[in-house]
Write a protein that binds this DNA or RNA. Structure first.
Lengths: 200, 200
DNA sequence: TTGTAATTTCAAAAATTCCTGAAACTCCAG
DNA sequence: CTGGAGTTTCAGGAATTTTTGAAATTACAA
């Protein structure tokens, strides 16, 4: 590994963390190197900085591309591929979240939907299905919220995040102005605290 | 594996997903079994339902306990430990998020803080530090937002989530009312779109 | 105490994933 | 075409993780 000390510490850490996320050490380190780099790097430069073999780097870059986490660039008069991360960190976060959702929650959602279609044969299956239905509803709520955040402009998103729990106060304020409209909904409409609710 | 068909499909799927998350197949399946179970189960019952060896189940349960994802129970006149997941799905989501944060983002945050304290020796380190600072700020924003959501009651949280992007409209409304106040801030205060910002 | 049921630990086998060098492939300039 | 720079694929060795059975430990009843 051939990097200035601070960068090296960061890259090493990202390698470790890589294994806690779905990606592996190699991929984590490669990404960290690109993230810190002051310009796009070609595969050999990445080899030099990380100390990984050429083929390992190639694999890692392919993986990162499949995650849409790196951008491919070219230089005039140079046939080599150059790789870079987006400058805008929010863009990175957005693709990261999108990809993790695609890999970690979407498959579960579709399995749940499928299993909820099936008729419950046994008593135990009926209970299991009730439990799955709860999970399905919760995930639906979270993903549809996410879908709306995703659509939002970064500035506004940041504004919302900075506001934090104070959004609650803004809401209360709104309620006070337009109270009648909001209060019309059932109070437990979204919360659904009852655990078993067999409307099979 | 000894389970009714629908449950079996669910448990198998959770096993697969387990490996995409930090946990492994065994732990994923054990958790799924407990999640679907109509009552708390002891280790032998989990063995029977999953088909894993007794010791493997013991390991898995220990892991789940370290994640705070299972609750230990006892029956009068029975020395065995019984395990269950919380009935309230929101409680599960809360601990899941809390634990993942603890394992996946907190360590990074502290490494970043540490590296940002160091003086940048080289030119390259200075650039790397600027990049790290961006990342640090973004993670801080996200985690402090999370901390506030965490503190919120489930009902209110669900209300907020259901509202989705309509919160944005409330913001717009607020802006229109108090426009002058909000506009006083620097326009790029939170977003920080400029990539290089060397204030080392 | 002693005996026994329940659980945990541990070393090593089994399975999986990672990493590499060599070979194959692609693409372009001459 | 041919040569060669750049890249990818791939089989198999290295490293890591998972899983297990046997042994050790714990906790309690008699």
């Amino acid at each position: 590994m051939n990097l200035p000390p601070l960068s090296q510490a960061f890259v090493l850490h990202f390698g470790e963390m890589g294994s806690r996320w779905g990606i592996n050490r190699t991929v984590g380190q490669i990404y960290a190197v690109l993230f810190l780099a002051e310009r796009a790097l070609n595969a050999d430069e990445i080899c030099e900085r990380t100390g990984f073999s050429r083929s390992n780097v190639s694999m890692g870059l392919k993986e990162l591309q499949s995650w849409n986490l790196v951008r491919l660039q070219h230089r005039p008069g140079d046939r080599r591929d150059y790789f870079a991360t987006p400058d805008d960190l929010w863009a990175i976060v957005r693709t990261l979240v999108a990809e993790r959702k695609k890999r970690e929650v979407d498959p579960t959602l579709s399995v749940l939907r499928e299993l909820l279609m099936q008729p419950a044969a046994t008593e135990a299956d009926a209970h299991a299905q009730a439990r799955m239905r709860e999970m399905h509803e919760l995930i639906e709520l979270l993903t549809s919220w996410y879908a709306e955040m995703e659509r939002m402009e970064t500035d506004r998103l940041v504004q919302l995040l900075s506001l934090g729990a104070r959004v609650g106060q803004v809401l209360e304020f709104k309620d006070r102005l337009f109270g009648a409209v909001t209060r019309k909904r059932e109070p437990d409409d979204g919360a659904r605290p009852r655990p078993t609710d067999e409307e099979a």
